[in-house]
């Protein structure tokens, strides 16, 4: 156990030492790896903010059913029953035409609107909120209700919901693809650096094998080096993303304000940043492992 710890300490210190003795090479490598990683990380951060915006939207796939003014009380009772039998219904709110007019006058800031209108032009309506945002559910509800007697119009924001969802899904897919591509890039870059290191250190490896070094002993410093390199580039990518968000925030805030939105580009959370560094370290390690597999143990 003590020997094992000593070996690990030795490997770790020697890989740190190697990073430090070639500061320029280390710097360039880390920058290239960091930029590579920051692209998917930045995209993921932007997407997370967009997803948050979508979740916070007031319209949660709400459907409004407008009732004909000449609907009979039987039709209204039938509609009432049908509404409450809908699958996936979170809440159903009946808005009478008087309440609707009252709300409208308040919203417009015209308290005597009802007095000025000769007749209330608004219909009674049901406002239906589903338990989840799901365009398919909205369509199903719309189909079930729009043919009923007494129903004038079923209006939903499902088109808009669909578009946003499709956009987020596309972004998600794109980020995943980009992340996978650049992860492969990171593994390749890391692996290639380790491969070159192995080649320059072949004499040491040969002598070590001749005097009783195990494969693990020989591989360990390279694996540490790869993981350390990945870890540092992950931290760097985290920093790059934070700086980019910090730089973009004033302009983005202004843009969002002009659109009357409260959209804020959020910084990556601590857990997201730590995940990024951990994944980067793992990828660096993987690169080193592959390089060892194909250069050393052939």
């Amino acid at each position: 156990m003590k020997i094992w710890l000593a070996h690990h300490r030795h490997a770790f210190v020697s890989s740190l030492h190697r990073l430090a003795t070639a500061p320029f090479a280390t710097f360039f490598t880390l920058v290239s790896l960091g930029i590579t990683l920051s692209l998917p990380a930045g995209l993921a951060a932007g997407l997370a903010s967009l997803q948050q915006l979508a979740d916070r939207l007031p319209a949660q796939g709400t459907l409004t059913v407008y009732i004909r003014t000449d609907a009979s009380s039987d039709d209204r009772a039938a509609l009432d029953r049908r509404v409450h039998a809908l699958p996936g219904l979170a809440s159903a709110r009946f808005i009478s035409r008087n309440d609707a007019l009252h709300e409208l006058s308040q919203h417009l800031g015209l308290p005597d609107l009802s007095a000025e209108l000769p007749d209330n032009p608004l219909p009674d309506a049901w406002q239906l909120t589903p338990t989840r945002i799901d365009p398919a559910l909205n369509r199903e509800w719309s189909e079930r209700l729009s043919h009923l007697a007494g129903v004038d119009l079923v209006l939903g924001d499902q088109v808009w919901v669909s578009r946003l969802n499709a956009l987020v899904a596309l972004g998600d897919r794109l980020t995943t693809f980009l992340a996978m591509l650049l992860a492969a890039g990171l593994v390749t870059i890391s692996g290639n650096i380790i491969r070159l290191q192995i080649l320059t250190r072949l004499p040491e490896i040969e002598v070590s094998q001749l005097i009783g070094a195990t494969d693990r002993f020989i591989q360990r410093p390279f694996l540490y080096f790869g993981a350390l390199q990945g870890l540092l580039s992950g931290v760097l990518a985290w920093g790059i993303v934070c700086i980019a968000i910090w730089l973009a925030t004033p302009e983005l805030g202004e843009l969002a304000r002009l659109y009357g939105s409260a959209f804020v580009l959020g910084y990556p959370t601590a857990s997201a940043g730590l995940t990024l560094t951990a994944v980067a370290a793992a990828l660096g390690w993987l690169g080193a492992w592959l390089a060892l597999r194909y250069t050393l143990l052939r």
Binding site: H10, P203, E204, S208, I211, G212, F217
Partner: peptide, 23 residues
């Protein structure tokens, strides 16, 4: 000889001891 020319004399001699895990 198979010496390692990237390190000094004593570090060449230390190599087998590092491998064996000496303090």
């Amino acid at each position: 000889h198979k010496l390692l020319f990237d390190r000094n004399v004593i570090h060449n001699v230390l190599l087998p001891l590092d491998i064996a895990g000496f303090r």
